[in-house]
Amino acid sequence: MSRWRLRRPRGGVEVASAIVVAVAVLVLVVRGAVVAAVAARDAWPVLLVVAVLGGLVAVWRVRQTAGERQRARERLAVLRFTLDECDAMDDRQFEYALRDLLIRDGWPARRVGGRGDQAADVIGDHAQRGRIVVQAKHTRVGGRVGSSVMYAVKGTAGPAHRADHAVVVTNGTFTRDAMAWGDRHGVRWIDRQRLQRWANEGIALHELLAMPARQRRALRRTA
């Protein structure tokens, strides 16, 4: 397919023609600018009103968004879940509840649970305490969590998620071996009794588990 190409004028006639065309284009541009200026001069009250209204709408939207965020923070600040409410949740709802509790306690967190989650249902990051990985184990009342869960969390918290803290949370209980193994290897646990204090009584997780204020990096090394 042929392409149009511009070439320099050749000869006096072509140069003169090019000058005429350029002058005509310049005249049209100037006339257009004059018309636009006159129109703007005549319409400036309307343009001013539109600008003011646009500014007011922008300010209203900013304030509305800020208000919604403030209300969300206030709701989270008093967030509480009873054990009965936790028992009535399904697995996904329980994970979201733990995420919200972390946010309440100052850990910006997100739910990541699902297929291929590598033993992490919720991950949170704290400015002073580092990263936390939470594995949620929602069970029927009386259900018990065994040591295998502790092994899985310990094996992925540091290498896969670069976490400083690993916690397993259940609305049930843990076997004695699971609790002992977790205590020895730095995997913290929240059973039904501790969940009552965290979720319902409002004690912050890092206070409940005596997490240090300084970031710890032991879990980031491969076990």
Rank of each mutant, 00 (worst) to 15 (best):
A88G: 10
V21S: 09
R110F: 14
V35T: 15
G54C: 08
R104K: 08
E85R: 07
P108N: 02
R73P: 03
V112E: 03
D91F: 04
D87S: 04
P9D: 03
A43Q: 13
E85H: 02
I19F: 15
V20W: 15
V50R: 12
A51I: 04
R10G: 07
A72N: 11
R104C: 00
P9R: 02
W60V: 11
A22Y: 09
V30S: 04
S2H: 07
Y96F: 07
R99E: 12
V57H: 05
L76N: 01
G55M: 01
V62Y: 14
P108R: 01
A36D: 15
Y96D: 06
A36S: 12
V46S: 14
Q70W: 06
V23M: 09
R10L: 07
V59R: 14
G55W: 01
A72L: 15
A88K: 07
T82F: 05
G11I: 01
I19G: 10
V112A: 03
D105F: 02
V27E: 03
A33R: 11
R41M: 14
A37T: 14
V38L: 14
L83A: 03
A58S: 13
W4Q: 12
F94L: 07
W4G: 08
V25A: 10
R7D: 06
V34D: 05
C86E: 02
S2V: 12
C86S: 03
V50K: 06
G54F: 09
V29K: 04
V15D: 04
R92K: 07
R63A: 10
A24K: 08
V57N: 07
V15G: 04
L47K: 06
T65V: 12
G12Y: 10
V59M: 14
A33E: 13
L28C: 09
R69M: 10
A66C: 04
T82P: 00
V13C: 10
R104L: 00
D100Q: 05
V27G: 08
L76M: 04
A18Y: 07
V30N: 03
L98T: 12
C86F: 11
L79S: 00
I19P: 02
R5L: 10
V30E: 05
V25T: 12
R75F: 07
V38R: 12
T82I: 05
L79T: 00
E85W: 01
D42F: 10
D42W: 08
S2G: 08
A66N: 13
I103A: 09
Q64P: 00
V23R: 13
L26K: 01
L98V: 14
A109N: 02
V35K: 15
R73M: 13
R61G: 10
A18R: 13
D91L: 03
L53A: 10
M1D: 13
T65F: 11
R80E: 09
E95S: 07
I103Q: 13
R63S: 09
